[in-house]
Simulated assay, not measured.
Amino acid sequence: MSSGVCLRVLRAAGSPPAASSGSWSRVRLPADPRHAPRRGLSASGRGGTMNVFNREMKKKQKEWAASLRDGDQFDYLRDEVGGRVADRVYDIVRTFPLALDIGGGKSHIAGHLSKVQSAPVTYENSDLQKQSRRSEIPTHRLLADEEFLPFKENTFDLVVSSLSLHWINDLPGALRQIQQVLKPDGVFIGAMVGGETLYELRCSLQLAETEREGGFSPHVSPYTAVTDLGNLLGRAGFSMLTVDVDDVQVNYPGIIEVMTDLQGMGESNCAWNRKSLLHRDTILAAEAIYKEMYGNEDGSIPATFEILYMIGWKPHESQAKPAKRGSANVSFGDLSKISQPTNTNTS
């Protein structure tokens, strides 16, 4: 499987494909000066864009994870969240002839949206068990950048994304582009990691590093807070917004297994201000702190992944709109004057 960000175009059955079903189309975008690595506040974009993540480092991390021979054992979280995103697609009573899956990977969403061939898989270091899925939806894959979508406006009926957008520097810009490539009355359904993710690991490492080294550096990447997500979607031009939070907790034997699985997922820290080396004494101290503060009775330790789910629609004249301010003909004060029916005993 090729590495890098995968933009997967999904065509519903009966829709005319742009190429043969299941084919691969690799599109290399022309060099763009905005892709050059920069730290801190970038001059590009409206009002400047925060450049928190080293995107080149994240690309290398994903390439390494994709090259693992036994990489499927690290897919449990993506499969779980992909299934929950698919459930939200099923909640909408509508067909979507053309859809875009940003960061599609190994059909973590599409595998739940069509007939699939399944085989049981047990994931090491995890209490999650899922089915290995292979989607039958005709797809066309493009290697591109989530921050620079290579599609025309008003192209897709549906855009989905699962566990990809949290590594974007210009999240407001990416959401605006998603809104633009949707057709009017199209819908975006996504999931991304939230700010409380891996709080157990973050706290344990900070306490251990402060004790052993006299200070701490960030070892877990910063993520978007749920309180900001609705505002970002609104600013991007979406309407009829829905945002909800779900915690997925996975139990591991120890802190080494937590960090090993994060590497295997391609989810290691890639912030510019990350510290590349953890001393052995610090890791041992963090292990003890982790088990003391958060450990389970059986000796395992929990790792919590806060998942933010979002749904936003591109505005269309057919959509329900709130009434104009001042147009109500009944006040809340009048409700108190409504008499309640009384029960009468006819016996």
Rank of each mutant, 00 (worst) to 15 (best):
R11K: 11
R11I: 11
A12G: 01
A13T: 08
A13S: 11
G14K: 03
G14D: 05
S15D: 12
P16F: 04
P17Q: 01
A18Y: 04
A18R: 09
A19W: 08
S21M: 11
S21T: 13
S23T: 12
W24E: 14
W24H: 11
W24M: 12
S25G: 07
V27W: 09
V27A: 08
V27G: 04
L29C: 09
L29A: 15
L29Q: 15
P30S: 13
P30A: 12
P30H: 07
A31E: 15
A31S: 13
D32Y: 05
D32A: 01
P33W: 00
R34D: 09
H35K: 09
H35P: 02
A36F: 03
R39C: 08
L41Q: 02
S42N: 04
A43E: 07
A43R: 14
A43Y: 02
S44Y: 12
G45N: 10
G45Q: 08
G45P: 05
G45S: 12
G47I: 00
G48I: 06
T49P: 01
M50E: 06
N51T: 04
N51R: 03
N54H: 06
N54K: 01
N54E: 08
R55G: 14
R55N: 11
E56D: 14
M57R: 15
M57D: 13
K58E: 02
K58V: 01
K59H: 14
K60A: 15
K60Q: 15
K60W: 11
Q61I: 06
K62Y: 03
K62N: 12
E63Y: 09
E63R: 14
W64S: 13
W64G: 05
W64A: 15
W64K: 14
W64D: 13
A65D: 01
A65W: 05
A66L: 06
S67D: 13
R69L: 13
R69W: 13
D70F: 06
G71H: 09
D72N: 01
D72I: 10
D72P: 00
D72T: 05
Q73C: 07
Q73G: 11
Y76Q: 02
Y76L: 04
R78C: 04
R78E: 06
D79F: 10
E80A: 14
G82S: 05
G83K: 14
R84V: 00
R88E: 08
R88P: 07
V89S: 02
I92W: 01
I92L: 15
I92V: 10
R94F: 05
T95W: 08
T95D: 12
T95H: 12
F96L: 02
F96T: 01
P97T: 04
P97V: 06
L98P: 05
A99N: 06
L100Y: 11
L100K: 07
D101I: 04
D101G: 00
I102P: 02
I102W: 07
I102G: 05
I102F: 08
G103W: 11
G104E: 10
K106A: 15
S107A: 15
S107W: 08
S107T: 13
A110R: 04
A110K: 00
G111I: 06
G111Y: 02
H112P: 06
S114P: 04
S114I: 05
